[in-house]
Simulated assay, not measured.
Amino acid sequence: MRLKKAGYQGIFLPELGIAMDGTHTDAEYTFVTHAHADHMHRNRSAYTHASKPTLQLMKLRGFNGSSEALEFGQPLETDQFSVTLYPAGHILGSAMIYVQSDLGSLLYTGDYRTPPSPATEGFEAPPQADYLITEATFGLPIYRWKSNAQLAGEVQQFARKTLEENYTPVFLAYNLGKAQEIMHLCSSLDHPIMIHGAGHKLCPVYDDAGIDLGPYQAYDRDTCEGKILVCPSSALSGGFASNVRKKRIAYCSGWAALESRRTQLTVDKLIPISDHLDFYELIDFCENLNPKKVYITHTPNPDVVKHFLDERDINSSFLNLEMEADD
Score class of each variant (00 low, 15 high):
P127A: 07
Q128F: 13
Q128N: 08
A129N: 03
I133S: 05
T134K: 00
T134Q: 00
E135Y: 04
A136R: 01
T137L: 11
F138N: 04
G139S: 03
P141E: 06
I142M: 13
Y143L: 04
R144G: 00
K146M: 13
S147Q: 10
A149M: 12
Q150W: 05
Q150P: 01
Q150F: 07
Q150K: 13
L151S: 05
A152C: 07
G153K: 08
E154P: 00
V155Q: 01
Q156Y: 03
Q156A: 11
Q156N: 00
F158P: 03
A159T: 03
R160H: 13
K161P: 00
T162D: 11
T162E: 11
T162P: 10
L163V: 08
N166M: 05
Y167P: 07
P169H: 04
P169T: 05
V170C: 08
A173W: 06
Y174L: 10
L176Q: 07
K178N: 06
K178L: 14
A179N: 02
A179D: 03
A179F: 02
Q180P: 02
I182W: 04
I182G: 03
M183I: 01
M183T: 01
M183S: 05
C186H: 06
C186M: 09
S188G: 05
I193L: 12
I195G: 05
G197L: 13
A198I: 06
G199M: 05
G199D: 04
G199T: 07
H200T: 11
K201R: 14
L202Y: 08
P204H: 09
V205M: 10
Y206R: 02
D207W: 04
L213A: 07
G214K: 13
G214D: 14
Q217H: 12
Q217A: 15
Q217G: 15
Y219T: 07
Y219M: 11
T223S: 15
E225Y: 08
G226S: 08
I228H: 09
I228L: 15
L229C: 12
C231M: 15
P232Q: 10
S233C: 09
S234L: 14
S234W: 12
S234Q: 14
L236M: 15
